[in-house]
């Protein structure tokens, strides 16, 4: 072949050929990538992003100053502090108790395990207002449980403790249901390996099983916390709703709406949203770190 001869195409594909839209042109096993991606983006926009954008657009009726005055309002700040700390504390308790419940449900066979398993979902299924009334009756100073604590001067209902209990109630299933399948699928041979290497059961639990559960624990924690931050129905009955003391942020938003202060309500909502995004981002970052350690 002489140097001046044109390059022969190999396999019928001319040299220097590049497929159009290389990024969308890879061979995929499943068809319909473009259609499903388009649908997903449109749906997420419609259901999630556009309403959130509307929320972000709403507070500016009274300008930056109006937003700032809501942001720095002592009552708003107190409610945010209450909402996020009680939700966080409830998620932490749920993390421990939920893990133990998931452990019992997956590791032990006993009569009634199925029924117990079904009970875990009740906080999902129960209308939150019903739960609120039930908890309120139970923990009021003249209720079954509340009356036990009253002699010691401990009030549960109508205090932050009551809020905490309501949030523990609604958040529990999230931890149990996140951890349970991972625990059930946990490779028995890994535990047996730890055993034959001389690890005591508690060492196996802490050093082998818990780290393996970490991503699921984090998921359960964040779901439980997210649910608790936004919880309204079950809390308002037991909270007492005293400004600065036992008034959660969702309750404050309702109050502002009832006063026709839509911009104010949206401002509080936006602040809550931003906080939630920050917390979710932190949890997601932790999850990615765990994920990369696990499989890289």
């Amino acid at each position: 072949m002489t140097a001046s001869a044109p390059a022969q195409p190999t396999n019928g594909v001319p040299e220097n050929f590049t497929p159009p839209h290389p990024s969308l042109h890879t061979n995929r096993v499943l068809p319909g990538f473009k259609v499903s991606l388009g649908f997903t983006i449109a749906y997420v926009s419609l259901i999630v992003l556009i309403p959130l954008a509307a929320l972000a657009a709403r507070p500016w009726e009274h300008g930056w100053a109006g937003f700032w005055s809501v942001l720095t309002d002592g009552r708003v700040l107190a409610s945010l502090r209450l909402s996020f700390t009680t939700a966080g504390a409830a998620a932490v308790l749920n993390l421990f108790v939920g893990t133990i419940i998931a452990w019992v449900l997956t590791r032990y066979k006993f009569p009634g395990v199925k029924i117990l398993d079904a009970f875990v979902d009740l906080p999902f299924a129960l209308p939150t207002a019903v739960a609120g009334i039930a908890l309120c009756t139970l923990y009021a100073t003249n209720g079954w449980v509340g009356s036990l604590f009253a002699p010691f001067g401990i009030k549960i209902a109508y205090t932050p403790i009551g809020i905490f209990i309501a949030l523990v109630f609604v958040g529990l299933p999230f931890v149990v249901r996140s951890v349970q399948p991972v625990l059930a699928d946990f490779d028995a041979e890994v535990e047996e390996a730890a055993l034959t290497l001389g690890a005591a059961p508690w060492q196996t639990a802490i050093r082998v099983i818990l780290p393996g559960l970490a991503p699921a624990l984090l998921t359960g924690f964040s779901l439980s916390m997210a649910r608790a931050v936004g919880e309204y129905g079950s809390v308002i009955f037991i909270a007492g709703n005293m400004p600065y003391i036992s008034e959660i942020t969702p309750q404050l938003i309702i109050i502002k709406l009832q006063e026709y202060d839509y911009a104010g309500a949206a401002s509080v909502g936006l602040i809550m949203l931003l906080w939630s995004i920050v917390i979710l981002a932190i949890i997601n970052a932790a999850q990615m770190w765990l994920f990369q350690r696990g499989r890289a």
Binding site: A194, G198, R293
Partner: peptide, 24 residues
């Protein structure tokens, strides 16, 4: 004991896996 599925501790480094039986 060596298992067919390896049964390694995924969240530990190779060195930590090997050391496990001594550190417990």
């Amino acid at each position: 004991m060596v298992f067919q599925s390896y049964a390694l501790f995924r969240h530990m480094t190779v060195a930590d896996n090997i050391a496990f039986g001594l550190t417990v």
